[in-house]
Simulated scan of single mutants.
Amino acid sequence: MASGGEVKLFGMWASPAVRRVEWALKLKGIEYEYIEEDISNKSKDLVKYNPINKQVPVLLHNGKPIIESLVIIEYIDEVWKHNPILPKDPYERAMARFWATYSEDKCRGAVREVFFAEGEKRVKAIKCLEETLRALDEELKGKKFFGGENIGFSDLVLGWMAFWLGVSEEVASFEVLDPKKFPWFTSWIDNFLKVPVIKENLPPRDKTVEFFHSYRRLHLAAPKC
């Protein structure tokens, strides 16, 4: 059977993209071997299985590599049919993919801009980030999760914001997660982080804050071309 056989996940503990794949595997109850990568000294296997960009996550299923976290989650959902992640309804599936794309195209860039910006650039960057959060807040109005009562594809993809956005606020000394401005989005964060599969598969917060402090310092100290 296609769903049988060996499953391995090449990852890095602090990576939100890796965690979302782990959440999907855990939701499905799929047994897998986790292989931690040192991104500064990538293994031969990582380079072999992802020669395109040499990044994590990489899912290895029966010796065949799948790369890019969103693609991996859809693959997992197609191969292991139980506990579906994407909705069956075509319109709802399209909307789930839309918000996943919105996360990757808009939210990640907006958070990154604020995380590294300083002075006037930061003020403008925060306004842009708040616009993306406003859109998410409006979509979540009256809902526990993006798909309703249970977490699904959009929640897994946007799940990095539930944990790593708060980490980013602490590391870079800014604040956007205001329950008064974004009541539905902040409520979603609370609901998402209470789900056992999510709560039990988050990196240690202190260690994550320390890691991103170092990451930010290195970025700001790097010479600009």
Results as ranks from 00 to 15, higher is better:
2 A>E: 15
3 S>L: 12
3 S>H: 14
6 E>W: 02
6 E>S: 15
9 L>G: 00
10 F>G: 05
14 A>L: 00
15 S>W: 10
16 P>Q: 07
18 V>H: 07
18 V>N: 04
18 V>P: 03
21 V>G: 00
24 A>K: 03
25 L>Y: 07
25 L>E: 03
27 L>P: 09
27 L>D: 07
29 G>P: 11
30 I>S: 12
32 Y>R: 08
32 Y>F: 15
32 Y>L: 05
35 I>C: 04
36 E>R: 06
37 E>V: 03
39 I>R: 09
40 S>Q: 14
43 S>N: 00
44 K>F: 01
46 L>G: 07
48 K>C: 04
48 K>N: 05
54 K>N: 14
54 K>A: 10
54 K>E: 11
55 Q>M: 10
57 P>I: 07
63 G>W: 14
63 G>K: 14
64 K>D: 02
70 L>G: 10
70 L>C: 13
73 I>C: 09
74 E>W: 06
74 E>L: 06
76 I>H: 11
76 I>S: 11
77 D>H: 13
79 V>F: 08
80 W>S: 08
81 K>C: 13
85 I>A: 01
86 L>V: 02
88 K>V: 04
90 P>E: 11
90 P>A: 08
90 P>W: 07
91 Y>W: 11
91 Y>C: 04
92 E>F: 08
96 A>T: 02
97 R>E: 03
98 F>K: 04
98 F>T: 02
99 W>L: 06
100 A>Y: 01
101 T>K: 14
102 Y>W: 15
104 E>L: 11
107 C>S: 13
108 R>L: 12
108 R>I: 12
108 R>P: 04
111 V>A: 03
112 R>C: 04
113 E>M: 10
114 V>Q: 03
118 E>W: 05
118 E>P: 00
119 G>E: 12
120 E>H: 13
121 K>W: 05
121 K>S: 13
122 R>L: 12
123 V>M: 12
124 K>E: 15
128 C>P: 02
128 C>W: 03
129 L>D: 01
129 L>G: 04
130 E>C: 07
137 D>Y: 06
138 E>W: 01
142 G>C: 01
142 G>Q: 06
147 G>I: 04
150 N>I: 05
150 N>C: 12
150 N>W: 11
150 N>V: 11
152 G>P: 00
155 D>N: 00
156 L>T: 03
158 L>Y: 01
159 G>S: 10
159 G>A: 08
160 W>G: 00
161 M>I: 13
164 W>L: 05
166 G>H: 13
166 G>A: 12
172 A>M: 01
172 A>I: 06
173 S>F: 02
174 F>T: 07
178 D>H: 09
178 D>S: 13
179 P>D: 10
181 K>L: 15
183 P>Y: 06
184 W>Y: 15
184 W>H: 15
184 W>T: 13
185 F>M: 03
186 T>C: 12
189 I>L: 01
190 D>I: 02
193 L>D: 01
195 V>I: 15
198 I>C: 10
199 K>E: 09
201 N>C: 02
202 L>I: 11
205 R>F: 05
208 T>S: 08
209 V>H: 00
211 F>D: 00
212 F>G: 02
213 H>T: 02
213 H>A: 00
215 Y>T: 11
218 L>C: 07
219 H>Q: 15
220 L>S: 10
221 A>Y: 11
221 A>Q: 15
221 A>E: 15
223 P>Q: 10
225 C>E: 11
